[in-house]
């Protein structure tokens, strides 16, 4: 990827139904994710998405860029969750190549919600 390459468009819109289904698939039924009434009584004021859900655009975009259905073996990803994502949020990816070695792209990314708030930031080094 070079700075002149267009980034494949990708975003994810989070719904409570999506969160509930992710809970079923992952077994993560943390009340913060799936119990609307209980979550409303927490400082979050409502349910929040599993952290893996707003991460999805990074996988999709990277895999599309490299033309493979999975990340190359040896790929590394480090990230911080800056804010929770909630039902109704649309998360889009901002990505830039921060590496000098074309064979081992070093991608800096941010997942940003519809208000422009960064919810995740991180780095992905392809194997």
């Amino acid at each position: 990827m070079t700075p002149s390459d267009p980034l494949p468009p990708n975003e994810i819109t989070i719904t409570q139904e999506m969160i509930d289904e992710y809970a079923r698939i992952s077994g993560d039924f943390n009340p913060l994710h799936v119990d609307v009434e209980a979550a409303a009584r927490t400082p979050f004021g409502g349910t929040i998405a599993h952290g893996c859900i707003p991460m999805e655009p990074i996988f999709k975009v990277v895999q599309r860029i490299i033309g493979k259905p999975v990340m190359p073996a040896g790929s590394r990803m480090s990230l911080r969750y800056l804010q929770p994502s909630r039902p109704g949020d649309t998360i889009r990816l901002e990505l830039r190549d921060d590496g000098n070695d074309a064979a081992a792209a070093d991608l800096v990314f941010a997942c940003v919600n519809q208000r422009g708030d960064k919810v995740i930031e991180g780095r992905c080094t392809l194997g």
Partner: peptide, 24 residues
């Protein structure tokens, strides 16, 4: 995630702050 929840490793109310993942 599934293992951690099924084995009651993660306490309810745990808040994930950051990941360091390696894919094979």
């Amino acid at each position: 995630l599934r293992l951690g929840w099924e084995e009651d490793v993660f306490p309810p109310g745990a808040i994930r702050m950051g990941d360091e993942n390696v894919y094979g």
